[in-house]
Structures are given as C-alpha cells and as structure tokens.
C-alpha cells in the first residue's frame, strides 16, 4: 500500500530532510511516526500525498509511483487519500456541512449522494447537531473533528494525519485518536505523525521513529520511546 525505497529529500540542494528511508506499510495498518521536531515526519507525510517529490529513491502509494506521476493525475490520486493537519485547514466562510461536502463536490458526486454521505460522516465524528455552524464558532477539538469528517467522507484507503492533536488538550486529543482508530477498524490504513507520547504509549500500534531524517526504530506494538 505504501512503499518507500532509499528515499532522500533535500531542499535547496544541501538541506537534508530525509535520507535512506525504506518503509513499507501494508493495507489496514495503523502507524505512528514519532521523533523530535525537525526529524522529517512532516516531510515524510508530504511525500505520501504528493505534496513533495523525493530527490532520490522511489515513493509508491496505492500502486502509483509518485515521483513520475503526471501533474494532471495528482487530484485523482489525492481523492483516494484523506489528510488531517494540526491547523485543521477548514474554509472559514463555509459551514461544517459545506466544509465536509466540499471534498465530495470536487469529485462531481451527485447532490443527493453528497447529503447522505456528509450526514453519515458528521454522525461518525458526532457533529450532526453543529452542521450549520461556522468553523470560528467551534472549539479546536470540534474543528479537528470536522477535518476528520472531511477526510473520511470519501472513504479513503489511506488516512494521513500530521500532528492532529498538536493544538488540542489531552481529553480532546483522546477523542481524535479514538476517531482515527475507528477509521482504521473500518479498514482504512492510518499514518499519524505525532508528539503525543501518552497516546502512542497507550494505543500500542506500530511506531516508526525518525531522527535527523533517518528511520532509527520501527517496532510493531511499540511505544513513543525505547
């Protein structure tokens, strides 16, 4: 499902963000990417949804070689992936419902189908009652739940999350991790870059640790640190 071979990513020719990365993630896995700030977690996530391309090596996701992918193909590839960020990336001038529906509108999904699926996604993240609220009227946790609903509404094969609880308190973070775990239970492969030590330790999932752009540890049912 995700396969990185000898991947290297440098910026401006000399700043190395990732080096010698070899990683395989199978269908249905739940993987935590951990490590200090600047270790290369976000760069790795960006490579997986083709926001960045590797300087060297191969990145293959959902059977597609992202390094040689044509520009016109990128949107169709991204429709198979859901992405969640620390800063939520919601459209401020649209309601909760419209933000989630937006992910389906770009795919020319029929209106009736959009309504059904959005309501369902909002039900999963427990935000059906706030469907008409605007992002600024929501708490941080609620906003992140909208972002997760938007990521899940297309039933993605892979869900990527880059520091999804970075701006949230522990109890709200717990809700978010529960939602990610629930998506994983439904069959979605989940990759989460995080600093949330307590949750990584508690959830006992696969942990890949990055340090200075290299993978220094890859453990099944691991914890945040050795």
């Amino acid at each position: 499902m995700i396969c990185l071979k000898n991947v290297e990513k440098t910026y401006n020719g000399h700043i190395t963000a990732l080096s010698g990365i070899n990683l395989q993630v199978d269908k249905g896995e739940f993987v935590f990417l951990v490590g200090p700030s600047g270790a290369g977690k976000s760069t790795l996530i960006k490579l997986l949804y083709r926001e960045e391309v590797p300087t060297k090596g191969e990145v293959s996701v959902l059977g597609e070689d992202l390094g040689s992918m044509r520009r016109s193909r990128i949107p169709f590839f991204r429709r198979r992936i859901g992405v969640v960020f620390q800063d939520f990336k919601l459209l401020e001038d649209r309601t909760v419902y419209e933000n989630v529906a937006f992910a389906l509108r770009v795919t020319d999904c029929p209106s009736r189908e959009i309504q059904k699926r959005v309501i369902n996604a909002l039900h999963i993240v427990n935000l059906r009652d706030r469907r008409d609220a605007y992002p600024q009227e929501l708490s941080g946790g609620e906003q992140q739940r909208v972002a997760i609903a938007r990521a899940l509404v297309r039933k993605p094969e892979i869900l990527l999350a880059d520091e999804p609880t970075g701006n949230l308190d522990p109890s709200t973070s717990m809700e978010i991790f529960r939602l990610l775990e629930r998506a994983n239970l439904y069959g979605t492969t989940v990759v989460v870059a995080t600093h949330a030590r307590a949750f990584v330790d508690a959830m006992k999932k696969r942990v890949v640790e990055l340090r200075d752009g290299r993978i220094v540890r890859d453990v099944r049912r691991g914890s945040y640190s050795e």
């Binding site: 949804y49 016109s72 949107p75 169709f76 590839f77 991204r78 429709r79 992405v83 990336k89 919601l90 459209l91 937006f102 992910a103 770009v106 795919t107 938007r150």
Partner: peptide, 16 residues
C-alpha cells in the same frame, strides 16, 4: 490561496 490549497488537498482538478 488558502481555499485553493485546500481544494488541491482534497483532489480538485485544475479545471475545477
């Protein structure tokens, strides 16, 4: 541009 970035993220084509 913020909105455009989100559109790209969720798989909107250039035409859309």
């Amino acid at each position: 541009r913020h909105e455009v970035a989100i559109m790209k993220l969720v798989g909107a084509t250039d035409g859309f």
